[in-house]
Amino acid sequence: MADSTDRILDAAYARMLEHGLRRLTVDDVAKQAGLSRITVYRRFSRRSELIQGVILRELRRFLQAFEQAVAPLPTTADRVTEGFAVTLRLVRGHPLLSRLLASEPDMILPHLTLEAGPYVAVARQYLAARLDVPEAEAVAEMFIRVALSFVLIPDSAVPLGSDAEARAYARRHLVPLLPSEGIN
């Protein structure tokens, strides 16, 4: 079952990358995955669930890369600083997200704003578990929302074009928002 789900998500990702969301069909995904339509519908009963499945899988992949980058760092402040830089670099450079934001913003933006609750919840739970601070969930959500706003609205007076600029911003503006007991 997991193998079929991976094949479906791989095919959906490839179709989304090549053709966008507007032209994404379950029939095309099934064909590309080498599975029947009914198999796809058993795993994802609606097209919107298929899109959500792809986004959640990409979020989990992002979180793995994020973990590799920040886990070795000694302090919460260091992890927040590097985590912000890594987030901007990886999310801005993500092939599917970049393609959809450039070509079909009207199709992807609802998934990243009004319908982003499931994704924010996954990221919040992940980040809160790694922040050794009081009110970790609230702090994690604030950091996620700040990063998301810079990703979705890249035109800014804040220079964030490089990792060094993102780290400087995080040290200056995000680290001071940590509860004082958590800046180890």
Score class of each variant (00 low, 15 high):
A2C: 09
Q125A: 05
V139D: 01
G34R: 05
L56C: 09
G117K: 09
A129N: 08
S48H: 10
R60H: 15
L148A: 12
A33K: 00
S162D: 11
V120N: 12
L63I: 10
V146G: 00
P72H: 10
R130I: 01
P105E: 13
Q52G: 09
R99V: 03
P154D: 05
A164S: 07
A2Q: 11
L97S: 08
Q68R: 14
V133Q: 04
R57D: 06
R23H: 14
I153R: 12
D3W: 12
V29D: 02
G83N: 08
V139S: 02
G34N: 06
P176V: 10
R46H: 08
L88A: 04
E82T: 07
R15Q: 15
I51N: 04
S48P: 06
E58W: 01
L109C: 06
A65V: 13
V29A: 00
L109M: 10
I51R: 07
P134G: 14
E82H: 10
R23T: 15
E137H: 10
H111T: 14
S36D: 15
A12Q: 12
S45E: 10
E49N: 11
A123D: 00
A168W: 07
L21W: 05
S103R: 14
D3R: 15
E49H: 12
E137K: 09
P74E: 04
F44L: 03
I144E: 00
L152Q: 03
L114M: 13
A77P: 01
L96R: 07
R99C: 03
T39R: 11
D155K: 10
G161Q: 14
Q68A: 12
L114V: 11
V151E: 04
D155V: 08
H111D: 14
R47I: 05
F143I: 04
R37P: 02
R99Y: 08
V146I: 11
Y169V: 00
A138N: 07
L24R: 01
T81A: 01
R57C: 00
G161V: 07
Q32G: 06
A140T: 00
V139G: 00
D27G: 11
V26P: 02
R23D: 15
K31G: 05
Q125G: 12
F143D: 02
V122G: 00
D155I: 11
Y119Q: 14
V80N: 01
R46S: 15
R23M: 07
E18H: 08
L73K: 04
R172Q: 08
G83Y: 01
H111Q: 15
E49D: 13
R145H: 13
Y169R: 00
I183E: 08
E49V: 10
S4T: 11
I8T: 02
P176M: 06
E135Q: 10
Q68H: 10
S149Q: 14
Q32Y: 04
R22H: 09
A65D: 14
H173K: 06
V26M: 07
R167S: 04
A69L: 06
V86P: 00
P105C: 12
R145G: 02
E135P: 04
A164C: 09
D27T: 14
T25S: 15
R167W: 05
E67R: 05
R99L: 09
A2M: 11
A121T: 15
P159G: 11
S180T: 11
A170F: 01
E135N: 15
A71D: 09
D78H: 15
T75M: 05
